[in-house]
Design a protein around this nucleic acid. Structure first.
Lengths: 228, 228
DNA sequence: ATGCTAACGGAGCGATTCGCTCCGCTTCAA
DNA sequence: TTGAAGCGGAGCGAATCGCTCCGTTAGCAT
């Protein structure tokens, strides 16, 4: 009963493989969307299919794990942003960190996996933190008044999803990845400048409602009018 | 020899089908990327597979046609922009029109089809027109000085690709399409505000080179380091 | 050295989906 | 009424899918 941590033949390798799997899954999903195959993920991770299925009982379980990790990332980014004194700098931190997570590629799998309680819970916590961040920045007069939280969420998704980066990764053009990454940073900077309170004209149309973000996670039951 | 347009049993239906096919192909590619299947395209268009293959000898030929149409659209948008007297308004017209084309979804098929001479030619023409448009806006002091044409191209691609819109279309959620479309218009407006000359700080890093836009079209020959 | 065992990689299963062909049916001008 | 242009989709062989199953390998204790 003295030694309880005595068995671990190849445990270090297992952890490395798990990390590789999660990263590979993100990349392959970015490249192939919901069609991402477990074979492609395993190959990209340099890991056997068997090892993948020892850790995750099904493909869906792996995808759910990815979602949870992404939601954790968003929550952490928002918390870090709140820890910054200057409201505008805090918001900028969140936006850039959220985009840098590389989780934007997960969008396409929304609606193809069932939402676990853990996912719903973490999503709510992250949302709350972001709401505080946004309100603080707006109250300080740093963020233009007509931008809602949903606007910001959609802007982040728009910038976080990069077909160019996904394709370069898929083609293994690691030589161009740095340049492409920097290019997106520039675009992000442009968008952030547009978020400042110095707006020339009010945003067009009505502010989008939350349903835009939530309804996409409802599985494609019989909604598919194409098959009707 | 007098009457040369006398035979056309179901020609009207054929034209309608062709338009439906092209639109459906854009949508399905947006949803499924390079994995888009001809069956899905035909079904979405409400057309038989046979009709698709009577017009396009192969799937690649259909995709090439889509690319040509997209390039025509970019060129037209740029030309229209140049026809507008105010340099800034002209640029705004091009950006919004280019995003609205719905051709951003085509990005994922870059590198999976061979580039025809027609495509290369039209691409060059469109590029030239955009270059003029950008230089004019910058010379007028409307566009911030540190934004290059490549920056603008990438910004347009970033905004033109919308996982949310693609997914809603795929799920047949036509009820939310208008809201989502308006939401992206708002985001576009934010980005355009960021492009104005009133920049607070210079853009980070170095301006990206053209190769970011061109090299992605080189087929994934043996570049794929994943399979090595 | 020699077990013991947890973790490994991947061949291969049945099922599905792929691009595409082929053909009987439908529509319309003459 | 007829002929031909256009139609939809069943079905072909090939490829790919998610997943199981099993012989092999690597590190611990003896």
């Amino acid at each position: 009963m003295a030694k309880d941590t005595r068995r671990a033949p190849r445990q270090a390798e297992a952890e490395r493989n798990d990390r590789a799997l999660l990263e590979a899954a993100r990349e392959v999903i970015g490249a192939d969307g919901e069609h991402a195959s477990v074979a492609a993920i395993a190959k990209r991770a340099g890991v056997g299919i068997g090892s993948l299925y020892r850790r995750y009982r099904t493909k869906e379980e792996l995808f759910q794990r990815l979602s949870v990790i992404a939601l954790d990332g968003y929550h952490r980014a928002a918390t870090e942003g709140l820890a910054i004194d200057d409201p505008w700098e805090g918001l900028v931190h969140y936006v850039t960190a959220a985009i840098g997570l590389g989780a934007g590629s997960l969008g396409p799998i929304a609606g193809t996996i069932t939402v676990t309680d853990e996912m719903a819970d973490k999503n709510e916590r992250a949302d709350d933190a972001v709401a505080t961040l946004v309100e603080r920045a707006r109250a300080a007069g740093a963020l233009r008044a007509d931008v809602t939280q949903v606007d910001l969420d959609l802007l982040i998704e728009q910038l976080a999803t990069s077909p160019l980066l996904d394709q370069l990764r898929k083609q293994g053009r690691t030589d161009l990845l740095d340049v492409a990454w920097n290019a997106r940073t520039r675009i992000t900077a442009i968008a952030l400048d547009g978020l400042r309170a110095t707006a020339s004209q009010p945003l067009p149309g009505h502010p989008p409602g939350r349903e835009l973000l939530t309804e996409r996670w409802t599985p494609a039951d019989e909604v598919d009018d194409v098959r009707r």
